[in-house]
């Protein structure tokens, strides 16, 4: 087990090298100039040139890449060209925002998705099955930006019951400890802030969770249908067990593996920052951070953040693989 984990962690190295080369190449291949985007249209050529010199942008690509990797190896994620802030420090604020949103969205997606999938499978071809699976089909096909805008229009503009953007209403005080606002407000007993932070989570959470929810529901249904045909389900029935026990203990535990794979992948994807959702709802997370960095050609921010995101993605997948063992004791790690 330990050997397996260390092997998987070692495999991070080639992955990160690959990711760093690709992001470095991509960001340098797209046209645009960080100096120009910082200094604006009116800057003179001399000003631009001196800034480029200062930022090291005139060095050969290989030297720039080497400098980037060298910094990373020393644990330095670099400095944002635009804000001059340390990227590591900024991520400390952006990452919890994204994580909080992701956890909330996945909580919605997993509970509703699995429940809908199980009911749809047990009552195959019933009205619930038909409606929920048609709904799931809509869910995977809905453009998030459209769903987000519609929700803002309806819940914020028309009904005015949910805040349209951000993590907190301006003016709400909160003492940050972990930068997870729900957690922080609870820890400090600040229930007004808790309620405010929660209300801000609802719409982006739904927007972000819809696609995973739909995928999880469909996956759970098909996996459950497969398992319900197995001999051991008939055995459980022949033992006279209650239906609920058969479905949730005997069937769902077996049907959960493929669903777990999907949950792990989706979780990793969402943690990487949901660019669309975070942009629409002005959520100060990683997705929006990278999006703004790309627009401003903030090379270090793009490179370092994507590297961090890739690491998280690999770690989440490793965690998923380790969780398999809990659901299927036959799995061995070598």
């Amino acid at each position: 087990m330990l050997k397996y984990i260390s092997k998987r962690l070692l495999m991070l190295i080639p992955v990160l090298i690959g990711v760093s080369i690709i992001t470095f190449s991509l960001i340098h291949l797209i046209p645009g100039d960080p100096a120009r985007s910082m200094l604006g249209e009116k800057a003179t050529e001399a000003q631009l040139e001196s800034l480029r010199q200062e930022l090291g942008l005139n060095d050969p690509y290989i030297v720039q890449y080497g400098r980037f990797v060298g910094d990373i190896l020393q644990g330095d994620l670099g400095q944002s060209i635009q804000s001059k802030e340390s990227i590591g420090y900024e991520l400390l604020h952006k990452l919890p925002a994204t994580m909080e949103l992701t956890l909330f969205a996945m909580l919605l997606a997993v509970t509703i998705g699995i429940l809908a999938g199980v009911i749809a499978a047990v009552k195959q071809y019933s009205w619930f099955d038909n409606i929920s699976m048609t709904g799931a089909l809509f869910g995977v096909s809905l453009p998030i930006f459209w769903l987000g805008l519609m929700m803002i229009w309806f819940f914020s503009v028309k009904l005015n019951i949910l805040p349209p953007s951000g993590r907190l209403t301006p003016g709400t005080e909160i003492n940050t400890i972990t930068n997870f606002y729900l957690l922080d407000s609870l820890l400090t007993g600040n229930f007004r802030a808790f309620k405010d932070a929660f209300l801000h989570l609802i719409m982006p959470g739904i927007a972000l969770g819809t696609i995973p929810m739909a995928i999880i529901a469909r996956m759970t249904r098909s996996s459950m249908l497969e398992v319900m045909k197995q001999d051991y389900i008939r055995t459980a029935d022949a033992k006279g067990l209650k239906t609920r026990l058969i479905i949730f203990r005997h069937a769902l535990k077996n049907a959960f593996l493929p669903v777990l794979t999907v949950i792990g992948l989706q979780f990793g994807l969402l943690l990487g920052g949901a660019v669309l959702t975070e942009t629409i709802f002005s959520w100060p997370g990683i997705g929006r951070y990278v999006y703004l960095a790309v627009l401003g050609r903030d090379y270090p921010v793009v490179q370092s953040t994507i590297l961090v995101v890739a690491t998280i993605f690999v770690l989440v997948n490793l965690l998923t693989d380790l969780l398999y063992k809990y659901f299927d004791p036959r799995i061995r790690y070598e």
């Binding site: 197995q230 022949a238 077996n254 659901f327 299927d328 036959r330």
Partner: peptide
């Protein structure tokens, strides 16, 4: 009570 043919598949593998 009932005993089935294939003991390989008649017991739940994850319990």
């Amino acid at each position: 009570a009932m005993v089935f043919q294939d003991p390989m598949t008649s017991l739940n593998p994850v319990l």
